[in-house]
Structures are given as C-alpha cells and as structure tokens.
Design a protein around this nucleic acid. Structure first.
Lengths: 348, 348
DNA sequence: CTGAAAGCGCTAACAA
DNA sequence: TTGTTAGCGCTTTCAG
C-alpha cells in the first residue's frame, strides 16, 4: 500500500510552505496564479486528496449523520434509509450506516465507535436485544455527552430525545375497521409478543376497532408469535400454528398480520387449505413492502411511508445540530396509509 | 448542544497533565493507583469518550471498511452487507455503508468523502450510472492514492484490483439445463439490457444451456427489459410485455428470469392467464431472496450466497490492508446453488 | 510516578 | 503574495 499524499509533502517537494499549498488548493486569491497552477498540477500528479479526518478534528464537526438500524434485510428500514440519505445529502450531510443485528452488544459497540468522533448525531431504531434488556445506558451516555439522537420506529418512553414514530395504533385500527366494513366478522390477528412496542400497539388498534364497531372479539383468534419468523426454516412452525388456528376456527373470514410476513403466511396457509382470496377470506398486513406488492394475490397493507420517516428524522436532527439552544424534545407522529390491493374487497 | 469532554479538560480540572490523564485512562502502570482512580472517576462523571478521529489521525489508519452499494432495497445487497459486517467485526474492523442509488455522481461523491480519511479500504459494487458512462476515473484515483478496493458483483474488466464475483454464467446455465431436464422445450428468458454485466452473463448461460442440450432456442422468447422495474408503477408495463409474449407464444412451458422480480412477474402473469404452476409452466429465478421464499407457489431459484460474497471480499481487503507487499490481484469466483421449491418439478 | 514536547493533516489569523 | 504559528484531541518518547 502506497501512502497518501499530504500538504506537507507537496510543500516540501515544491519548496513552498504548507499554508501556501493549502490556500492554493482551495483557490484563494491570496496566492499568485502561477504558484496556484504549479501546486494544483503537482497535487493532481500525486493524487492528493484532503484528509477529512484532519478537517473534522479542526472543525469539531463532521457533517455526517450516523444511522443504526437493527436489520438491513427489512424493506422498511431500507426505505427509511433512502429517505435519510436523500434528505441529508440535500442538506450537505453525509450518512453512515451501521447495523446492530438486533443485538444489544452490537448496538452499544456501534454507538460507541461512531459517537467518538465520526459523526455529529444519530438516527436510530433500537434493537430487540436492547428492548428486552431494558438497558439504555449507552443512549443516555451518548445524549449526556452532547450528541443528539433521534429515535425512530421502536420507542422508548423513558428516553428523552427527539422521536419520529408511526401511528401504529390508528393505522391498525383503521385497517381492521376496513375489514369489518367489508363484511368480516371473525378476524384473526397474527402478532408478536408484547415487548415489541409496535406489535403491542398494533394489537391495541385491532382490539379497539372491534370495540368501536361493536363487534365481539374472540381471544382465541389472536396468535402471538414469539419471534419474527424470518428465516426460511422458521417459516414452517409459523405456518403450522396458523393452520391449526384455521382448523379450530373455520369461521375466520379475515386476517390482520402485524407485518408482511405474518399476513402473507396467513394468506398462503389459507390458500393451501383451499380458501379463495378475497372471497372466502380477506387479508391485510402492516408494513407495505416488496412482499405485499408481489404476492399473488397482492396484499392490501398499511403503508408506513418509510422515506418520510427518514426525512423527518433528518430534519429534526439537523435542526438540533445547527442551533445552539436546546429546545424541548419533540415527537413527530406520522400517519399511515391503507393501500388497497387484491387481497381485500374494500369499497372506495 | 453540550460539547464533548476532552483529555485537556480533565487534566485542567484535576490539575494534572494531559499525558497523565491519557495514561491513567488506559490503565498504564506508570501512574499511581490513586491518581488513576481519581482520573477515571472524573472522566466517567464528564461522560468522557476518546475521540476516534484524533486517534485515526495519529495512527494513520481507521480500522474501518467502507462499503458502497447501488441500492439498499435489494435483498442481495443486504445479504452481502450482513456477510461483510459479521466477518469484519470478527477481525476487529468496523463497517460503514454508503449508497450510490445507481448514480454515477453519488458514487463519486461517496468515494471521495469516505476515501479521504474515514476508512482504510473499499468494498464496492459499481452503480449502473458508472457502467453506462464507462467512466472509472474515481476508482483509478482511489487505487492510485493507495487505497485498496475490492469489487463485487458487477464487474469492470479494465480495473485491476481484487474482485469477488458469482459465476453467473454457470449458475444460469445449470438452472436452464434443469428446466430442460424437467421437460421444458420452450423456455422464455426475461432479462435486462446487455450493459448490465450480470444480465449479459446470465443470458449467455441460458443460451449455452440450449446449445449443450441440443435444444432449439427461439430468439422471440427472449424479453429484454430496458430497466429494472422495481417501483410498483413500473410493474404494469413489465407485466403487459410478458403477457404479450405469452399470447404470441402459447408454447412457452418454462420461464427463466434473471432476477426475482422478473421471474415472479412471469409467474404471476401466467397464473392470471390460467396457467398452473408447475404443471403447465415451470419457473426459475436468479437471486434467492425473500420474494422467492414467500411467493405462492414458492419460487425455485439460483442462490448467490450473498453472505459468502461479503466474507470473501472482507478477507481479500484485510489481507491487502495488513500486508505491506502488494501481491498480484485476485478474482475469486463463487459458485451458485440451485434451490428447488414449488415452481418446478426437478428430479434432483 | 508525572510532565513536556512533538507530531498526525489541516486551517486561519497574523506577520512579513 | 507568501510564510509562521497555534491549535483541533490524542499518544508516546524522553526528561524530570
């Protein structure tokens, strides 16, 4: 590995001072045209590139935003990142992404590394590990250390910082009400354990829809899955539990899944058992991603507008970064949208 | 925003020297236990965190790897990143990810920013924009500047550096041969324009399979799509072109799609037209992602082992980073695997 | 056991 | 028009 050219080298080779080189390279009028040209040419020859690290040290800011997400293979997170990237770039910020893989330790590690100099602030969605441990010391520390954090998606009420969340409750309430409106009387819910905040809220929305519409809700129609069955092998137990529920409850005429995979698995199992979608059974999922679009029939789902989430988060972060005053923390709640596709018979 | 604590501050407050603080904080035996304790306690109080930026400046290496990918919403890239992350962390390296969004300009921008101090080397898959422009100056410059690059997936023969690629040709040849072996006589191909290297190679594999098996290949059964129809709106024209092909060629009894979306779209259109899968029509896709697993029926596909690609790339990069000698560049070719699911009737 | 000083690459105020 | 100097936060040698 060759080493990189520095101002010093250029200066020495050319017999001028470092600051002359520095000024020339940024086109300062202070330096004569002749010198500037000579220096520029030589710098090009050496493939000179200014060292951002040194700049950050000097400026005490990096103009980059750190993003930490639990998983990258989830379409939702990819969308948020797209939003973050696009908007941050517009504002002259760079974006660095790191993954926690749903692990508490890795989240801590990544925060520590990034927090110490590489970035000006964080946008992050906490890992399941962190949620389970209920250990947030790394977040407190980061905030205390003076580095702003914007939390998105999964929430932690204890932590005071800016947040952007999706209205999971309303989103799922409306989805379930739509199912009821389309004639469903026995809607099954496939959800997560309650410690996953969004799973909990979506479940609440499902229940509330029943109450509001004056429809009886049968607790046996709620299937609580103890983790996200996203690996291919793990799909099998999920499907057999769903099948079991269908066998026990042939009256089921609607499914609401708190994520794409759950909704889709429900639909698949039903199809295998001979149900016609949407005639015998209507299905709605939460999170509108590739799976919903490409399913057959395509899946009606609650769209979260991941790009907007990213956008909002960046906005909040930059505002805090660029203003000296620490105003009160905000929580931005974004509404969802029900995207109607082939798996339901909604009116409008 | 509060500002961060530094060694200097701690030193001043405690009336000791900066170097004493530095040593104490890293548990040097040089410093008395008493002083060490006092300093550690105070540092904790101030939420002190060493500034990595300063460290990098000093060490002239960052122990982090930069990854630039064209898109994050593609499952394949997410998998590669998983592989990179996992293996890099094992080796004590951190990973930073940036996106080019398939744009030449953004690729250049990201490389420039990261290359100047934030990372020790790159793992990257070039954007379509770059491929179209055939402008690789930014890559040359980076390499000349002494920063190693490992290219993966999309290839650029002109550039000499380490590479890890998937054997697209063999992969698709074997997939198509399997279709032929399962009785298909008229296999349609849904592919990209030729400037996308992998699309080209997969097409070659498809053709070669026909030659080797002594089966006539009808050029009309090749559908060349001029871009990746990944937005939902763009799905419609894709599907209507596919439908057209089916109407014109009712003899089609197999489909090979050079990516998941193409294969899936082919299958969906066929299903709508009343084809039974896999009885009337067998379908295979390239790239084994979520869509294939969750499709109904699930899709047989050529698996690329994205994680391994990431792993190999990291290995090559670290080897180069940690050895002084610049050995000859290598190209690692990884084999694919045909994952059989419900959309085909392979013997196996 | 503790501290002073140099230096990593760069910028900017100030001098010449 | 060019150069000197100090300093960003940290480590490390060398003195004290």
């Amino acid at each position: 590995m060759k080493k990189k050219a520095t101002l010093k080298e250029i200066a020495n080779e050319l017999g001028v001072s470092i600051s002359t080189v520095s000024k020339a390279l940024k086109g300062s009028t202070e330096i004569s045209e002749e010198t500037t040209e000579k220096i520029t040419a030589f710098a090009k020859l050496l493939h000179y590139r200014p060292n951002n690290i040194a700049l950050s040290l000097k400026n005490r800011r990096t103009k980059t935003i750190g993003v930490i997400i639990p998983e990258i293979v989830h379409h939702f997170f990819s969308e948020v990142i797209q939003g973050i990237e696009t908007f941050a770039n517009e504002k002259g910020y760079n974006v660095l992404i790191a993954l926690s893989n749903e692990s508490f330790d890795k989240e801590v590690f990544n925060i520590d590394t990034l927090a110490s100099g590489s970035i000006d602030g964080f946008i992050l969605s906490v890992s399941k590990g962190t949620l389970k441990n209920q250990d947030f010391h790394h977040l407190y520390e980061t905030i205390n250390q003076g580095m702003p954090i914007v939390l998105f998606d999964r929430q932690i009420p204890e932590i005071s910082c800016d947040k952007v969340i999706v209205d999971d409750f309303q989103g799922s309430r409306r989805a379930v009400e739509a199912l009821i409106g389309a004639g469903c009387k026995h809607i099954a819910l496939i959800t997560t354990e309650d410690y996953v905040d969004v799973g909990f809220k979506r479940t609440q929305g499902y229940l509330d829809a029943h109450t509001r519409q004056g429809i009886a809700q049968n607790p046996d129609l709620i299937l609580r899955v103890n983790d996200q069955f996203f690996s291919e092998d793990a799909l099998v137990p999920l499907q057999s539990r769903i099948k079991e529920m269908f066998l026990l409850h042939p009256e089921i005429d609607g499914i609401f899944g708190v994520n794409e995979v759950y909704a889709l698995s429900g639909m698949k199992v039903a199809q295998r058992m001979g149900y016609k979608i949407p005639d015998d059974l209507q299905v709605v999922g939460f999170t509108d991603g590739v799976l919903s679009k490409h399913a057959y029939p395509s899946l009606t789902s609650v769209k979260q507008h991941g790009q907007n989430i990213g956008r909002e988060a960046v906005q909040m972060l930059i505002r805090r970064l660029e203003s000296e005053s620490d105003g009160p923390f905000e929580t931005k709640v974004l509404q969802t949208e029900l995207v109607q596709r082939e798996s339901t018979r909604f009116e409008n």
